[in-house]
Design a protein around this nucleic acid. Structure first.
Lengths: 193, 193
DNA sequence: GTCTATAATAAGATAGAC
DNA sequence: GTCTATCTTATTATAGAC
């Protein structure tokens, strides 16, 4: 439960973000949100129209957050492969999984175009961003000239998302690392010496 | 709703399998299972102790099924890369996602060692099976001698699982194909000519 | 084996007092 | 803005008749 150094609206949003991450939309009840936020029933419905609006606010914030933190590594100095590696191997809450990716498994989120949009946009952006970096690396001669930026970017993002799945299945964060290292090894072998 | 050419117990199990795939454990209610199976309340509780036992039966069957269908491609004749490619590119219900992988996002499944076991075992098996095939391909000189079978197998399984995530996020089965093709391109470039 | 009560608890909100 | 009351509908069963 959040303490009172932020306002109720803020605590409700942050509680929702946590619960969506831990339990998804279907698994999160208004009551659970209120309890974690230390807010009453009436308080929640004063600030938000209901579970849906609260979730939308929470998802948008998480999406923005994810993008900003990715950009930290991706816009750092270094070669394409260095920035990509830094991004893939940065510290992550591996066993909690990806707070955006997990929403793709939520039937009520996928069925709702409004809730779904930020999820879609996040991956569109990430794939595009990685493709640009890969293309840059290829054009600078750091990577194999035959490398397909878009296809490789999709594969890399998929390894991230799938790495979370494998790690959670095995209850071992190491498996995420194994998968990521595995794809980096394949990619590095296409480096032009 | 299932018609009556199979018995009630069987219809309950198959309905549960479908619902777990579509909505996960948390999102599936006993009532929904009964309705899809065309079975009454009492009927369900006669055959199964409750939602948990039914889900366990359903998950185990789905896991067995998935393994058997993977083995179809993986044990076929051909080189390591051919069998791997056949497995990765076989027909799949891409937008529905992986019925086992999606369970890793279910908090109640992951919190229960009994429900979780078949999920874990399925991925342990699949990673091992792919690693064996990759090792075989490497030892036969079909793949790069420096290739790490276990790490590459994990990356490949991760691409599959992540491919489902990307496809669902974009509501486009093609994205799954893009990711899989992307990793195959990286892998093929390590073929020894 | 299947059906119809019955029931305690939770989900997801609305109403109106304070 | 927050709180308590109230409401309807699910959830997840159990009990016992048929």
């Amino acid at each position: 439960m959040y303490t009172a150094w932020v306002n109720t609206s803020e605590r409700l949003i942050e509680s929702t973000r946590e619960l969506l991450w831990e339990r998804g939309y279907v698994g999160t009840s208004p009551k659970a949100i209120q309890q974690r936020a230390g807010a009453g029933q009436g308080s929640m419905y004063h600030h938000f129209a209901g579970k849906h609006e609260l979730a939308l606010t929470a998802i948008r914030r998480t999406a923005d957050d994810m993008r900003a933190r990715a950009e930290e590594q991706l816009s750092a100095p270094g070669t394409a492969l260095e920035r990509l590696t830094a991004y893939l191997l940065r510290e992550r809450d591996v066993l909690k999984g990806c707070p955006i990716g997990r929403l793709t498994q939520d039937p009520d989120v996928m069925a709702d175009p409004v809730l779904r949009a930020p999820v879609d946009e996040t991956f569109v952006w990430l794939r595009g961003r990685l493709a640009d970096i890969l293309a840059e690396g290829r054009d600078r001669g750091e990577l194999d000239a035959a490398l397909d930026p878009a296809g490789t970017a999709s594969a890399v993002v998929a390894v991230l998302q799938g790495g979370y799945v494998l790690a959670r299945a095995a209850d071992s964060a190491e498996l995420f690392h194994t998968a990521v290292t595995g794809v980096l090894a394949l990619l590095s072998s296409r480096t032009t010496p």
